[in-house]
């Protein structure tokens, strides 16, 4: 008699824990032939609020770490992702990627994390500088993290898209609430397990699966979210984000692919300028 395999329950990732949605709802993740691969949690408005609250609580700890330390943790995520490459290739293949494309995507996602890991203790040297003011003052500008950032991950590529949008937000010390790919959610959920075993402090990344159309208005309107990366938003969803952003003057980044750039880090920073007189 063949052995019955044990299937995973795909849940949310909030505050370093894996809860089901408080709504008790889930939806089916389908493969390329329309067959049900698994059921995943449908996050509710309350789940999103919980995620924002835990993200807010994690800001000072994450932002307070040294760039060197954040860089090492990002590198550790890359290591763990590489280690579990097989699982991601399986999941991406099940969702319709060819095996070669899936392998390439996982490799690129690992490399992207390594690339951003190296920025964590350097980007402030690129964006910050001493300002030569006309007076006896020490004057310096340096970037600081914006705070809590909502990340709307692209539908596809489900893993590389998520990693490409998430990593630059984490680099300067922001914490995040991520809305995963709705159509290919499993790699994101498995990625949250990678995060959980890579020394990422609880609450720094909170990952929700569910209906983007349902969740985006709550994310966009939330008064304790400082910025939204709408990288995976449709034009209508982007407009909804921009409208909600008005309530507390959120910074909004529009979709612009899944490339890598230090200017993606800069988009989630605030430049602080400090003056001090010089004198005897």
């Amino acid at each position: 008699m063949s052995r019955l395999d044990v299937k995973k329950t795909y849940k949310l990732y909030i505050g370093g824990k894996f809860p089901r949605s408080e709504s008790g709802r889930s939806y089916p993740a389908l493969n390329k032939d329309g067959e049900v691969l698994a059921r995943v949690a449908s996050a509710s408005r309350k789940d999103l609020r919980d995620a924002v609250r835990t993200a807010r609580g994690a800001v000072s700890g994450w932002a307070g770490r040294s760039g060197y330390n954040r860089g090492q943790i990002l590198y550790r995520i890359a290591e763990t992702l590489e280690d579990r490459a097989g699982t991601f290739v399986e999941q991406l293949t099940a969702s319709g990627s060819t095996s070669a494309a899936a392998k390439k995507e996982v490799g690129q996602a690992v490399d992207r994390l390594v690339w951003y890991a190296g920025w964590a203790d350097k980007f402030a040297q690129i964006y910050g500088n001493l300002n030569p003011v006309s007076g006896p003052f020490f004057n310096i500008s340096a970037p600081e993290p914006t705070g809590v950032v909502g990340v709307i991950a692209p539908e596809e590529p489900a893993l590389l898209g998520l990693v490409s949008r998430l990593a630059p937000v984490l680099v300067p010390g922001n914490t995040t609430v991520v809305l995963a790919s709705e159509s290919v959610p499993m790699p994101a959920i498995t990625f949250s397990e990678v995060l959980d075993s890579s020394d990422v402090p609880a609450g720094v990344v909170n990952l929700l699966t569910g209906s983007k159309d349902d969740l985006i208005p709550f994310l966009a309107d939330h008064m304790d979210v400082n910025a939204v990366d709408a990288g995976g938003a449709t034009p209508n969803q982007l407009t909804r984000v921009q409208e909600g952003a008005v309530h507390n003057v959120k910074r909004v980044v529009a979709p612009d692919g899944t490339g890598q750039s230090p200017y993606r880090i800069a988009a989630f920073t605030e430049t602080k300028t400090v003056w001090h007189p010089k004198g005897l």
Partner: peptide, 26 residues
């Protein structure tokens, strides 16, 4: 805050960036 004046206040200079956090703009 986007600008912090330490032991001085309301100093401005063309070479010095100015602007806010949160609802003070971007």
């Amino acid at each position: 805050a986007g600008v912090v004046w330490a032991n001085t206040y309301n100093k401005f200079d063309p070479a010095s960036p100015f602007g806010g956090y949160k609802e003070s703009g971007f």
